[in-house]
Amino acid sequence: MHASLRRIYWWLIAPAVLLMLVFYIYPLVQVLWISVTDPVPGLGNYMELIERPLIHRIWMTTLRVCVITTAITVLAGYAVAYAMCQVGDRHRTWMMFCVLLTFWLSVLIRAFAWVMLLRTEGIVNSGLQELGLIDGPLRLVRNEFGVIVGMVHFMLPLAVLPIYSNMTGIDTRLISAARGLGASPIGAFTNVYLPLSKPGLIAATILVFVFSLGFFITPALLGGGKVVMISEYIQVSFEETLRWGQATMLSSTLLFSVLLSLALVARFVDLKKVFGAR
């Protein structure tokens, strides 16, 4: 009976496995194959990672923007999630609605909105000048600042949701017990609440960092060609310079970077517990 049930389970997941093989694994193998065969067979494309200063700069820009974006997003997401856990049900519902509302807006619309807000004649610069805080307009777009602002805005819900989900499972009586034993509010938070919310923090950090590595539209629009990240350079290699070997090499490197990040995190934490698996 046990063997027959196992066969039934395999037959049930067979369509999903087939779809993964056809629409994910096969194209991925093609990308890896092109990266070592175009324009000539070998590892010449991957040698560019070591030899070309331009690729070094692009990778350093990508990593710097992703790390800063992840740090700001996770800190802001933690604050929002913590506030959601402390307010009443009515306010919590409205806060959750505002968080989820961003998923209904196109990333393209949000990027253009930030361009209009942060441009030289935008609301932000006009407001600061009206308040007398600045004498002339600031350059808030076509640089890393604008890219980070747009990416943080997009990534914030991805940080809030896993952190909030983790926080809802924390027994608040533990905080009360710590206070009753003489801990200060800050001590109770740092020694009890913060460690218990660590799985949510780790999950949010992984999600935001991985999404940031491959982000394209927001850096392209808010960076204005001044801040080139790896995904934009892949697009240039595919469509403009037609260097498919280089483009697939960079795509493969991006994939390996994500896998390496997950492997490094897995050495210190149990990813199954972090993402709620049993």
Rank of each mutant, 00 (worst) to 15 (best):
G136S: 15
A159V: 00
L140Q: 01
F145L: 09
F154D: 00
A79H: 09
R119N: 13
V236K: 12
K226H: 15
P15W: 05
I206F: 04
E48K: 11
R142D: 15
H2V: 10
N125Y: 01
L133T: 05
A247L: 02
W11Q: 12
N45A: 03
P195E: 00
S4A: 15
L133I: 10
N191G: 14
L75R: 03
A277E: 13
L54G: 05
A203H: 04
F97G: 13
V210R: 10
T248I: 06
L156W: 00
L213S: 09
P219H: 06
T168C: 13
R110S: 03
G245H: 01
V74C: 00
I217S: 04
L117V: 05
V107Q: 04
T69D: 04
L262K: 09
D135S: 15
D135I: 11
L5K: 10
A79V: 12
L201I: 10
L43T: 09
T248G: 05
G132R: 02
V80K: 00
D38Q: 11
S261E: 09
W59M: 14
H91Y: 15
G88D: 08
S197T: 06
F256L: 15
D38L: 08
E130M: 14
S251G: 11
L131D: 07
S212G: 09
S4Q: 14
I230K: 00
I234F: 01
F209W: 08
F189I: 08
M95G: 13
E240L: 12
T93I: 11
T168F: 09
S261W: 12
A159M: 01
D89F: 15
